[in-house]
Design a binder for these strands. Structure first.
Length: 884
RNA sequence: GGGAGUUUAGCUCAGCUGGUUCAGAGCAUCUGCCUUACAAGCAGAGGGUCACUGGUUCGAACCCAGUAACUCCCACCA
C-alpha cells in the first residue's frame, strides 16, 4: 500500500462527517443509558462563525464525544437565536438596498421579509459548525422563534404577569436612537470620550435684590448644550454658600427663554463645574429623579431617532450632535458662554449599534428581579450549580445581590410580540389572543369594541426567549412531563463566554427554578475571550479575526481544534496565534506517520524478543497511568491539560520512545520482520491512543481507525469505548525512568562532542553485572547505537562519564576527548553539588528544623545529604583521574 | 468611586492541603543531524531574585499585610 508522506485532510473530513451523519451517530433518543446533555449557546441567526464560536463549540464537541465514548447517551442540542435587534438591523439594511423603507411597510409585510431573510441566510453558522466536526443532534435543531418556542415565551410572559412579577411603567431607559429601541443596562458599554464642558450663563429673571457687584447670572457647566431646551430647573447643593441667596428665584433658560426655578438637591457635587446643575428630566437619569422629587415638568426635546422634537422649539428636526454644534454657536452669539474646557468622561454606547445611548423616558414592561432571582443566587452559592472556574462566583453573587429590574420590551417587530392589549382609553389587559383580551376587558368592566383594541407594538427582549432554552428545546414548557424533558433535564454542562454570565446564564437558572423547580444545568464552563496578538478582543468591526473556515482549509479541522485548545484554560483569555494551529496540524502529521511506520512492517511468527516484551510492558503501564491522569483532568474540566497530556503520550511516549524501541532494524537495505505479538500489541496501543485523541481530533482518528484494521459497517471510533486504565506494576515506570535518563545522558555525550549518530559507541557501567542491568542492555544498545556494553569495577580512562541513578557510566572516547573541557564540566558539577550539600547541611544543622519538621521530611534531607556526599566523592575521583 | 481577578522562562500556561514532583510543560531560541515513519521531522542544550516590599514560619512561588502594573465587572457625577 502506498501511503502519502504527509497527512492530507482535505477529502477525509467531509467524508467522515457525512458517514457519521448517515449512520445517525449524533442522534440521541431517551433510553436506559445515563444521559449526557449539552444545549448549545444558540448563536445569532445572523451570525457567521468567529473564533469565539470555534473555541466554544470545540470544547462542547470534546466533552460530548468523550461522554459518548464513555457509554453515555450523549445529546448536544443545536440551534439559533432570533436575536431581535441584530436581525432586524440586517433585514432593514437588506430592504434599504432594495429601496424599501421599513416605515413604508406594514408589520405583517415586514415580518414576511424577515422570515424570508431568515430562511435564506439564517443558520449559515450551523452549517459552518459541521466543518468543525460538531457532533450535534441536528434533528433537534431549535430556533427561538419556532412556533412552539414562540408560544412558550408568550405563555411565560402572561404567567409572570399574572404572578405579579411583570409591571408596566414609565421609566428612564437606555434608548438606542439608531436601532430605535430601548436596550438593557447590560447592553450599554461605557466608553471614555473626550468632549467639551461648556460653562453657560443662565440670566437671573429679576436682579432687583442682588448685592452690588454680584453678577446677574448663574453659570452651569454641561457637556450636552443641545438639551438646554429641556431644562426645567437649576439645582444647587443646599449648603452651598455661593448660591443660598438665590434658591427659590428663577433663571432664564437660554435658547428658549423659559423661566425656571433654582432648587436644591443633596446629590449635587459642589466641586464639579460651578456647583450648578441644569435639570433636564427627560434626558438624564439623575435629573429625572430630581424632577420627580421636586414635581417638575418633563419636557422631552428629542424624537426617538435622536433628532430635536417640536418641544425643543429650536433646531427642530436637527440631529442631536448637529444640534449641539448649533446650540454652541447660538450661545456664543448670544454671549452666554463663559468658557469651555476639555473634558473626558464615560459615555454609554449601544453594544449592538455603537450609537451613543440616550436616556429616554418611555413606557416599558419590566420584570421584578429581586424575588424571582433568589433561588438562582442560592443555587450557585450552595454549589448546586458550579461555575468553572469558580472565581466567577464572586462576580455572580455581586450581580445577583444588586440585580435591577429587567426591561423586557424592545421597540422592534422581529421577536415575540408582547401579549398586551390596549383600549382607546389606555386601559390594558395581558392576554394570549384578541378574543381573550376582549373577554378580559369585559370581566374588568371595560366596555370596548373588538375593533378598537390594539395589541402592544413592542416585542420582548431576546434574552426573554433564550432564558427558556434548556427547557423549550425539549418542549418542557408546553409538555412538562414529556419523555425528553424528563430524561435530558437538567442538562449537564453549559459552555459559554463569561460576558453573558448575567444576560443569559443567570436568567436560565432563574427560569429553570421558576418553571421546572430545578436547575437547568450542573456545570457552567466559562471560556475565555479570544484575543488577537495585541490583546484586543477579536471582533468583526476591528477586522482582526481570522476566518475560521480559512483556518480549517489551511490547517484542517483537527489542527484548528487542537490549536484552539492548546492554550485555553477555563476562564482565561486566549491570545490567538495561528502558530498553535500549525502545531495542531503538525501533530496530525506525526500521528499519520506513526501509522505509516506501523503499517509498513512485515510480520512473522517468531517469538517477541525480551527487548520488545519490556517495551510493551512499559508502554502498557505508561498508557494506563496516563489514561488515569487524563480522566482526572477531564473531571476537573482542565481540557487544555488533558489535551497536552494526550499529545505527549502520543508524541513522546509512543512515537519517540516506544516505537523507537520496537522498530525493527534494517539489514541490507530491508527492514527485518516484526513478531506477531509485538505487532498486535502495537496496533492495540495505537488504537487506544486514537481513542484518547478522538474527542480532540475526530477526523484523523476516524480515518486511521479504519485504515489500521478491517471494520464493520458501524464500527467507528466515535462510538468506540473510551479506554480503560488497567492497574499495573508501578515499579516498571520507575525503572524505565532510570533507563531513559541514562539513555538521554549517553545521547548527550554524543551530541556535546559532535559524534555522528552513525558511529557506534561502547559503554562501561561501573557495577557488577546483574540480571536487571543485563535485561536493559538491548534497549540501551538500540536507543543509543552502542556496539557493546561492559561492566567494570574500576574507573575508565579517556572516557566521558556521567552518573545516573547513583551508577557511574563511562563512554570511552579515545582521541575525541578534550581533557580541559571534561575537567571544566566536572568542576562545574562538583561546585553545584557542593552548594546543594551546603544548603542541605545547614538545614540539618538547624535544631529547630530537626525538631519541628515532619520526620519523613528530615529523613529525606538526610538522604539528600548522603547522596550529595557520594556524588561529590565520585566526581572528585573522576577529576583526579583526568589530572593524572 | 466600589468589587473581583491576574502578575512564575521570549510567548502561553501548570505548580492541588507551605518541605523529593527538585521551580515544570508546550511553543519559540540555540547546537548537531535530510539516520529508509515523519525536516509539518530526529537528538540534545540553554533560559526564571516565581511583580515589588515587609511579616508569619525551622522552612514561602504557595499563608498574611502593603505597593505597583494590567484585566474584568458594577456605578447617576453633569
Amino acid at each position: 500500500m502506498e501511503i502519502n508522506k504527509t497527512y492530507d485532510p482535505s477529502l477525509i473530513e467531509d467524508k467522515w462527517y457525512k458517514y457519521w451523519m448517515e449512520h445517525k451517530f449524533f442522534k440521541s433518543v431517551p433510553d436506559e443509558r445515563e444521559p449526557y446533555t449539552i444545549v448549545i449557546p444558540p448563536p445569532n441567526v445572523t451570525g457567521v462563525l468567529h473564533m469565539g464560536h470555534m473555541l466554544n463549540n470545540t470544547l462542547q464537541d470534546v466533552l460530548i464525544r468523550r461522554a459518548r465514548m464513555l457509554g453515555k447517551n450523549a445529546c448536544w442540542v443545536p440551534g439559533t437565536d432570533h436575536a431581535s435587534i441584530a436581525t432586524e438591523a440586517k433585514v432593514v439594511q437588506m430592504l434599504r438596498e432594495r429601496g424599501i423603507k421599513k416605515s413604508d411597510l406594514s408589520r405583517e409585510d415586514f415580518m414576511k421579509y424577515a422570515w424570508e431573510w431568515k430562511e435564506k441566510y439564517g443558520g449559515i453558522i450551523l452549517e459552518q459548525l459541521k466543518k468543525l466536526g460538531a457532533s450535534c443532534d441536528w434533528d433537534r435543531t431549535s430556533f427561538t422563534m419556532d412556533k412552539g418556542y414562540y408560544n412558550d415565551v408568550i405563555n411565560v410572559f402572561i404567567d409572570l404577569y399574572n404572578k405579579g412579577y411583570i409591571y408596566r411603567g414609565k421609566r428612564m431607559v437606555n434608548w438606542d436612537p439608531v436601532a430605535l429601541t430601548a436596550v438593557s443596562d447590560e447592553e450599554v458599554i461605557f466608553k471614555q470620550v473626550n468632549s467639551k464642558l461648556v460653562y453657560v450663563k443662565y440670566m437671573l429673571e429679576e436682579t432687583s435684590n442682588l448685592k452690588p457687584q454680584s453678577p446677574n447670572f448663574l453659570v452651569v457647566a454641561t457637556v450636552r448644550p443641545e438639551t438646554i431646551m429641556g431644562d426645567v430647573a437649576v439645582a444647587v447643593h443646599p449648603e452651598d454658600e455661593r448660591y443660598k441667596h438665590l434658591v427659590g428665584k428663577k433663571v432664564i433658560v437660554p435658547l428658549v427663554n423659559r423661566a425656571v426655578p433654582i432648587i436644591t438637591d443633596d446629590g449635587i457635587d459642589r466641586e464639579f463645574g460651578t456647583g450648578c446643575l441644569k435639570v433636564t428630566p427627560a434626558h438624564d437619569i439623575v435629573d429625572y429623579e430630581i424632577g420627580l422629587k421636586n414635581n417638575l415638568p418633563i419636557i422631552d426635546t428629542l424624537n426617538e431617532d435622536g433628532t430635536i422634537s417640536e418641544s425643543g422649539q429650536v433646531f427642530v428636526g436637527m440631529d442631536r450632535f448637529a444640534a449641539r454644534k448649533a446650540a454652541l454657536k447660538k450661545l456664543e452669539e448670544d454671549g452666554l458662554i463663559e468658557k469651555m474646557e476639555d473634558y473626558s468622561h464615560q459615555v454609554g454606547h449601544s453594544e449592538r449599534t455603537n450609537a451613543v445611548i440616550e436616556p429616554r423616558l418611555s413606557m416599558q414592561w419590566f420584570l421584578k428581579m429581586k424575588d424571582i432571582s433568589k433561588p438562582a443566587l442560592d443555587a450557585v452559592m450552595n454549589g448546586e450549580v458550579n461555575l468553572i472556574p469558580n472565581k466567577f462566583i464572586n462576580t455572580y453573587k455581586h450581580w445577583m445581590e444588586n440585580v435591577r429590574d429587567w426591561c423586557l420590551s424592545r421597540q422592534l417587530w422581529w421577536g415575540q410580540r408582547i401579549p398586551a392589549w390596549y383600549s382607546p382609553n389606555g386601559e390594558y389587559v395581558v392576554a394570549k389572543t384578541e378574543d381573550e383580551a376582549v373577554e378580559k376587558f369585559k370581566s374588568q368592566k371595560v366596555e370596548v369594541k373588538r375593533e378598537e383594541i390594539k395589541q402592544d407594538e413592542d416585542v420582548l427582549d431576546t434574552w426573554a426567549s433564550s432564558w427558556l432554552w434548556p427547557i423549550s428545546v425539549f418542549d418542557g414548557m408546553e409538555n412538562p412531563d414529556n419523555e425528553d424533558i424528563k430524561y435530558y433535564y437538567p442538562t449537564n454542562d453549559l459552555i459559554t463566554a463569561p460576558e453573558i454570565l448575567f444576560f443569559w446564564v443567570a436568567r436560565m437558572i432563574i427560569a429553570g427554578y421558576e418553571y421546572r423547580g430545578e436547575k437547568p444545568f450542573t456545570n457552567v464552563y466559562l471560556t475565555g475571550i479570544v484575543r488577537d496578538k495585541l490583546g484586543r478582543k477579536m471582533s468583526k468591526s476591528l477586522g482582526n479575526s481570522p476566518d475560521p473556515l480559512e483556518l480549517i482549509t489551511k490547517y484542517s479541522a483537527d489542527g484548528v481544534r487542537v490549536g484552539m485548545l492548546l492554550c485555553s484554560p477555563a476562564g482565561n483569555d486566549l491570545p490567538f496565534d495561528e502558530g498553535h494551529c500549525e502545531q495542531g496540524r503538525n501533530f496530525a502529521n506525526k500521528i499519520w506517520n506513526a501509522f505509516r511506520l506501523i503499517k509498513g512492517w512485515t510480520i512473522d511468527d517468531s517469538e517477541p524478543s525480551q527487548k520488545n516484551q519490556m517495551a510493551i510492558d512499559w508502554f502498557s503501564a505508561k498508557l494506563s497511568a496516563e489514561i488515569e491522569n487524563i480522566n482526572d483532568l477531564y473531571s476537573k474540566y482542565r481540557i487544555s491539560e488533558a489535551l497536552m497530556a494526550s499529545y505527549k503520550l502520543m508524541w513522546d511516549d509512543f512515537c519517540a520512545w516506544y516505537l523507537e524501541m520496537v522498530k525493527p532494524d534494517f539489514v541490507d537495505g530491508a527492514a527485518l520482520p516484526i513478531d506477531n505479538y509485538t505487532y498486535n500489541s502495537t496496533i492495540e496501543f495505537f488504537e487506544e491512543l486514537l481513542k484518547v485523541l478522538h474527542p480532540f481530533m475526530p477526523f484523523i482518528t476516524e480515518e486511521l481507525w479504519h485504515l489500521i484494521g478491517e471494520r464493520e459497517e458501524k464500527e467507528c471510533i466515535m462510538v468506540a469505548e473510551w479506554p480503560e486504565a488497567i492497574t499495573s506494576d508501578p515499579g516498571i515506570l520507575k525503572r524505565f525512568e532510570a533507563l531513559m535518563d541514562s539513555i538521554v545522558q549517553i545521547r548527550n555525550v554524543r551530541n556535546e562532542r559532535n559524534i555522528s549518530p552513525k558511529d557506534a559507541l561502547e559503554l562501561y557501567i561501573r557495577i557488577p553485572e546483574n540480571p536487571v542491568s543485563k535485561s536493559f542492555e538491548p534497549l540501551m544498545m538500540k536507543m543509543c547505537n552502542l556496539s557493546a556494553i561492559h561492566y567494570t569495577e574500576d574507573k575508565v580512562e579517556n572516557a566521558a562519564s556521567f552518573i545516573s541513578s547513583n551508577i557511574e557510566f563511562f563512554v570511552p572516547l579515545a582521541g575525541k576527548i578534550n581533557v580541559e573541557d571534561e575537567k571544566a564540566k566536572l568542576m562545574k558539577d562538583i561546585d553545584y553539588n557542593k552548594g546543594f550539600l551546603k544548603s542541605v547541611q545547614s538545614k540539618l544543622a538547624n535544631e529547630r528544623f530537626v525538631s519541628n519538621a515532619k520526620p519523613e521530611v528530615v529523613d529525606s534531607e538526610r538522604k539528600k545529604e548522603a547522596d550529595a556526599l557520594n556524588k561529590i566523592k565520585t566526581l572528585e575521583e573522576q577529576l583526579g583521574m583526568l589530572e593524572k
